[in-house]
């Protein structure tokens, strides 16, 4: 039996530009994943609770303004809630010099504008598979 990847595509913080999030969510759906999609402006505790209840493997944060600056706080909160194994990726406009800090904080990957959807889907699929394998070691 297959364990379909479960992915959350969301926006935290204050910005509302969600074209990228929508396009990526639809692409991951078409790649056979189960995608929980939210409108923008989610707060961190809500995202953590959602990720746990929905048994999310990968969280994709879309950031066009500067909301990526609070992604480290999200990762902290996930860890504190016992969901530190969720892979967090960020897509959108992130200045180069702010990427290392995100990676340092535990972000699995940063995708910039122009990243092909297929590459994003491949990355998400394999990251999800790793999370699934540790959560359900003897599922298959």
């Amino acid at each position: 039996m297959e364990l379909r990847p479960r992915v959350l595509v969301t926006k935290i913080g204050l910005d509302g530009h969600d074209r990228g999030a929508r396009v990526v969510a639809a692409c991951l759906r078409d790649a056979g994943m189960e995608v929980v999609y939210t409108p923008p402006w989610q707060d961190i505790p809500a995202v953590v609770k959602l990720a746990i209840e929905e048994d999310i493997d990968v969280i994709g944060i879309s950031s066009l303004a500067t909301d990526h600056l609070i992604v480290p706080a999200l990762i902290e909160a996930l860890r504190a809630a016992g969901a530190g194994d969720v892979a967090v990726i960020v897509g959108g406009i992130v200045p180069d010099e702010e990427v290392p800090a995100l990676i340092e904080a535990g972000v699995a990957q940063v995708f910039h504008p122009g990243a092909p959807l297929a590459r994003i889907a491949d990355f998400v699929r394999s990251a999800a598979a790793r999370v699934r394998a540790t959560r359900f070691p003897d599922a298959r």
């Binding site: 913080g13 204050l14 910005d15 303004a65 500067t66 909301d67 600056l69 609070i70 706080a73």
Partner: peptide
């Protein structure tokens, strides 16, 4: 709001 975001945009 999160203080990190103030005045960034």
């Amino acid at each position: 709001v999160p203080a990190e975001l103030l005045g960034t945009c």
